[in-house]
Write a protein that binds this DNA or RNA. Structure first.
Length: 462
RNA sequence: UCCAGAGUAGCUCAGUGGUAGAGCGGUCGGCUGUUAACCGAUUGGUCGUAGGUUCGAAUCCUACCUCUGGAGCCA
C-alpha cells in the first residue's frame, strides 16, 4: 500500500479501494447506533470525506470524544456509500487521533460571519468559504503565469526595495536600518539618509513599472507579479497596504494593443477559474453572491465597452442621474460615476481611455490633441478599477517636459530617460490588481477576505 | 483621514432608566445509515474601555478603542 491519499483523490475514485489511508481535520461527527460518522476535510477540495467509525474500533471511546477541529489519520477501505449525499465513504479499520481539539475551538458547526472569521485568520482557512478562496487564489496565480508564458512574456522580478519614490503616487513605507532614537543628522537638522544602509533613502515598492519598462525595452514582452506596498491610510473594502499586482509591459505596442491584452487577460483568468475551480465557484454562487455565475459568463461572452474619457463624461452628464459629485470634464471620475457606467449603463466591464493629462502621472504618452494622455482604466461591476495602464511616453523631450510639469527633476531619473535616449520605442503596459481580480472572480466583497493575513491600517496581527 | 452605523453568552442578535434574554454552538441523556440530523435537559455574561449624570445605567452624557458600510487615494 502506498502513502495517504487526499480527500479529493478519494472522492474522485472510480473504484473501491481497500487498505487506503487519509488524514485531515474533523469537521463534524455524528453518532449512530453502532458507529460514528466523521466528516474529514484536508483542504484538498471543498467537500469532506465521510468516515464510518464502527464501535468495534479498539479506541472507539476516544473516537466518540473527537471534536470539531481535531486531526486524525484513518486507515480503512473506500467503499460505495450506503447513504445519500456522497458516492464514497471510508470504513475505518484504524483511526489514529493525531491532535485532539476541545469545545473552545472557535469554528463550530454553524454559520460564521466573514467578519468573525477575519479575527481568527489563522483558523479560517479551515472553513469552507476560506478554504475555497485560497484554493482559487492559488489557481489564479498559476493561471496568470500560464497566460503570459503561453504568449511569450518573460517573468521579471523587479526590486521590492526601491530607491525611486517616483510616480508621485501614494505614500511609501520607508526602509531603513538607522537607529530611530539617534539617527545621523545633517547640518540643517534633517536626517542624513546618506548614512543609511543603501546610502540613500529607500522604500518598499509601489510599482515595478519603471523597472519593467527597462526590461520590456530589451526582452520585448515582460510581466511582473509580486507584492506591492502602499502606506496610504485607506479604509475601504478594496484597499490593502500589502497586495499583489501583475504588471505586463510590451515594447512596440500602442494603447489599443494594451487594451486588447487587458481584456484578454481578464477573460482568460475567468475562464481558467471556471474550468479548474468549478466546485469552489459553486460555493461562492450559492453563499456569497447569487449573481456571480451569470456575471462571469456575461463578462467572458462579450467584448468590453471601450469609451474615451470625454465620451464617459458626456454619457454621465446626459444620464439624468443625480450624482453626489458633479460630473465635469477635467475631474477624476468618482466611484459613483464609474459604478453607473459599469453597473447601470453598460452592465459589463468598461475600458475608459484618453484621460486629461492633468489628472494622470508623468509617464503617460501625450496624445496629438495635446490635452489627453493614453491612460486606460478597466472598470468592472462591483469593484471598480481592476486595471490601470497606459502607453508610455517614449519621446525624450516630451517626457522631460512632463517631469518638469510634475515638479520632478529629470536628473533624478537618468536611467529611466536613458530608455528614451537609446533605441526608444512605443511601449505600453498596465497593472492588474491580483486581489481585485480574485474578488471579482469569487464575488467576495472585502479584500481582507482574499488575503491570507491582510495588512491594513492599524492591523498587522498574525 | 472624513461621514454614517454598530460593539450584550463561544457565534448571530433582542433588550431604550427598575432582578440580563432567545436562537445556534457546547455539555449530558434519548433516538437514529446520519449528513447544517432529530427529541429532551443543561451550561453559559466585568453588557467594548474609562469617566460622568441618577436613588438606580446595557439603556442617558463625554472621551477613547475596535469593527462594518460609504467617500477620498488607487490596484
Amino acid at each position: 500500500m502506498s502513502g495517504p491519499i487526499s480527500v479529493k483523490a478519494a472522492l474522485a475514485s472510480t473504484a473501491p479501494i481497500s487498505g487506503m489511508q487519509v488524514q485531515g481535520w474533523v469537521r463534524t461527527r455524528r453518532d449512530s447506533k453502532d458507529f460514528s460518522f466523521i466528516e474529514l476535510n484536508d483542504g484538498s477540495c471543498l467537500r469532506s470525506l465521510q468516515i464510518i467509525a464502527k464501535s468495534t474500533l479498539p479506541n472507539y471511546a476516544d473516537v466518540q470524544r473527537l471534536q470539531t477541529g481535531a486531526s486524525i489519520a484513518v486507515r480503512g477501505d473506500l467503499v460505495a456509500s450506503q447513504g445519500k449525499g456522497q458516492a464514497w465513504e471510508v470504513v475505518a479499520n484504524e483511526i489514529e487521533i493525531v491532535g485532539p481539539s476541545d469545545d473552545t475551538y472557535p469554528l463550530q458547526k454553524k454559520g460564521h460571519t466573514p467578519e468573525f472569521l477575519r479575527e481568527i485568520a489563522h483558523l479560517r482557512p479551515r472553513s469552507n468559504l476560506f478554504g475555497a478562496v485560497f484554493r482559487v487564489r492559488s489557481r489564479l496565480a498559476f493561471a496568470i503565469h500560464q497566460f503570459f508564458q503561453e504568449r511569450g512574456f518573460v517573468y521579471v522580478h523587479t526590486p521590492i526595495i526601491t530607491g525611486s519614490d517616483c510616480e508621485g503616487a501614494g505614500e511609501l513605507f520607508r526602509v531603513t536600518s538607522l537607529d530611530l532614537k539617534q539617527p545621523p543628522r545633517r547640518a540643517d537638522g534633517s536626517i542624513d539618509y546618506a548614512q543609511d544602509f543603501f546610502a540613500r533613502s529607500t522604500y518598499l515598492t509601489v510599482s515595478g513599472q519603471l523597472e519593467g519598462e527597462a526590461f520590456a525595452c530589451a526582452l520585448s514582452k515582460i510581466y511582473t507579479f509580486g507584492p506591492t506596498f502602499r502606506a496610504e491610510n485607506s479604509n475601504t473594502s478594496r484597499h490593502a497596504n500589502e497586495f499583489w499586482m501583475i504588471e505586463p509591459e510590451m515594447a512596440f505596442t500602442n494603447l489599443n494593443g494594451n487594451m486588447d491584452l487587458a481584456e484578454e487577460t481578464v477573460k482568460y483568468l475567468i475562464r481558467d477559474i471556471k474550468t479548474n475551480c468549478a466546485e469552489d465557484l459553486g460555493l461562492f454562487s450559492k453563499f456569497v453572491d447569487k449573481e456571480l455565475s451569470a456575471r462571469l459568463d456575461f463578462v467572458i461572452d462579450r467584448p468590453f465597452q471601450r469609451i474615451t474619457y470625454t465620451e464617459a463624461v458626456e454619457l454621465l452628464k446626459r444620464s439624468g442621474e443625480k450624482f453626489e459629485f458633479p460630473v465635469a470634464y477635467g475631474a477624476n471620475l468618482q466611484s459613483e460615476h464609474e459604478r453607473w457606467l459599469t453597473e447601470k449603463h453598460f452592465k459589463c466591464p468598461v475600458t475608459v481611455f484618453n484621460y486629461p493629462q492633468e489628472i494622470k502621472p508623468f509617464y503617460m504618452r501625450l496624445n496629438d490633441d495635446g490635452k489627453t494622455v493614453t491612460a486606460m482604466d478597466v472598470l468592472v461591476p462591483g469593484i471598480g478599477e481592476i486595471v490601470g495602464g497606459s502607453q508610455r511616453e517614449e519621446r525624450l523631450e516630451v517626457l522631460e517636459e512632463n517631469m518638469r510639469r510634475h515638479q520632478m527633476d529629470p536628473a533624478d531619473y537618468k536611467w529611466y530617460l536613458d530608455l528614451r535616449r537609446y533605441g526608444t520605442v512605443p511601449h505600453s503596459g498596465f497593472g492588474l490588481g491580483f486581489e481585485r481580480m480574485l474578488m471579482f472572480v469569487t464575488g467576495v466583497s472585502n479584500i481582507r477576505d482574499v488575503i491570507p493575513f491582510a495588512r491594513t491600517p492599524g492591523s498587522a496581527e498574525f
